[in-house]
Each structure stands twice: as structure tokens, then as C-alpha cells.
Computed example of a mutant assay.
Amino acid sequence: MAAIGIMGGTFDPVHIGHLIAAETARGKCGLDEVWFIPSYAPPLKDNEPGADSRARYLMVQEAVRTNPFFRVLDIELVRGGTSYSYDTAAELVRSYPEHSFSYIIGSDRINDLPRWHRIEELAELVSFIGLERPETPARPEGLPEYLRRKLRLALMPPIGISSTDIRECLMSGQSVQYMVPDGVLDMIRRNGYYGT
């Protein structure tokens, strides 16, 4: 049985922090692969994405193409509508019964877990890997026991980069060189994403 990490999110745009998070989880938690699943419409985000779902998918494909342990799935884009982790997990477990799955989340999202759609059922299907950052320590003691039981923590190097910061830099004409993979930056410039 292969152990698969799930990196979900808007990836608007994907950046080196996402890649470092995925590699940290893979190395520290013994994952065989990490699957990136760009969301069509995330339920807990207030802002609309800056690039459309297909563009975000293609940027993630470009970002991970040289890593044999990373792959990208478009299942949430194909399904459309609000992207609930439960629906994605149920589809993955049904389609790949020979694998075990763990959602990779930042320590800032750990305490949000009880708010996730159908969280008790989701926790029956998958485990969770919480990536702790020194500036945002995890506080799992406040979680229900059924979630604490399914949660592993791993320390991640501090990376002070967010997709929001990158979009703001791009819209104001500032450089984001080295914050995103070169191929992704080329796509952003070529297609005029985020006002470039």
C-alpha cells in the first residue's frame, strides 16, 4: 500500500513554499508520493482566485514536472462547484483502494479542522499531516480526540511566502523571482496573470 500525501489548495499561484511543504511532508512522514489537487472553488476562502482554475492547474503541473514523487490531479476541476475535501477523499479512496491518504495542512489550519465539511467522515477516510512553522506552532490539544488520533506533526523550515503576497507583488510590478519556479513565472508573464 502506497502512502500518498494530498496537497490541496488554490495554488494561486503555486510557489516554492508549497513545494517545500510537500517535500518536507514526504521526507519526514515517509510518504511515497505527494499529489497536488488544485481546487475549483475552495469553501473556506473569502477571495476569488486571481487566475482561473485551468491556469492554476497548468502552473502546478509546470512546478512539479521535475519531481518524480509529485503529481497533479484535476479531479476537483472536473467535478466543479465548491471543492470539499470529503468529496475528494471519497473519490480517491474509491479510485485508489490500494493507497492510504493523508491531507497535508499548515499548522495555521489545524485548529480549523473541526469546521471542515463532514470532518468526522473525512477523518475515517484519511489522516492529516500538520506542518508546524516556528512562528505558528500547532495547538492540537484543542482538537477532538478523533482528530488528534489521525494527526501527525512535522516541523517545516520557515518560509515567509504566500500566494497573496506574490499576487500583490505582481500587481504592483515588483519582482517575484525565486518565489515561484522559473517555469511558473514564465507562464505568469506570458499569459498576463495577476496584471503582469
Rank of each mutant, 00 (worst) to 15 (best):
Tyr84Lys: 09
Asp12Trp: 03
Arg189Glu: 12
Arg118Met: 13
Gly5Met: 03
Ser53His: 13
Ala22Lys: 01
Ala21Arg: 02
Leu31Asn: 06
Arg71Lys: 15
Asp87Asn: 12
Tyr178His: 13
Leu19Gly: 01
Ala89Asp: 01
Gly17Asn: 02
Asp108Glu: 14
Asp186Phe: 03
Ser83Gln: 10
Arg79Ala: 15
Ile4Val: 15
Val176Gln: 01
Thr66Asn: 13
His99Cys: 15
Arg71Cys: 10
Ala123Gln: 06
Arg71Val: 01
Thr10Gln: 09
Asp165Ile: 00
Gly5Lys: 06
Val72Asn: 04
Asp87Leu: 02
Asp182Ile: 11
Gly30Phe: 05
Gly8Trp: 08
Arg115Gln: 14
Ile129Cys: 09
Arg152Val: 09
Pro134Cys: 05
Met1Leu: 04
Glu124Phe: 00
Glu135His: 15
Ile16Ala: 00
Leu155Pro: 08
Glu76Gln: 04
Glu120Ala: 11
Pro158Asp: 14
Leu147Ala: 09
Val176Trp: 01
Gly142Arg: 11
Asn111Tyr: 01
Cys169Lys: 15
Gly50Thr: 06
Pro43Phe: 08
Pro38Ile: 09
Leu58Asn: 14
Ser83Asn: 09
Phe128Arg: 02
Arg167Val: 00
Ser95Lys: 11
Val180Glu: 00
Leu170Tyr: 07
Ile129Glu: 08
Leu153Gln: 10
Val93Trp: 08
Val93Pro: 04
Met7Pro: 02
Val72Glu: 03
Gly130Val: 05
Glu91Gly: 00
Leu44Asn: 11
Gly81Lys: 09
Glu76Tyr: 10
Glu145Leu: 12
Val64Asp: 02
Ser85Arg: 04
Ile161Leu: 11
Pro114Gly: 08
Leu185Arg: 15
His15Asn: 10
Asp74Leu: 07
Cys29Gly: 01
Pro43Met: 06
Thr10Lys: 09
Arg152Gln: 14
Ile159Asn: 07
Glu141Phe: 08
Leu58His: 15
Asp112Gly: 08
Pro38Cys: 07
Asp182Gly: 13
Glu91Trp: 13
Arg79Gly: 10
Val126Cys: 11
Gly9Lys: 04
Tyr178Ile: 03
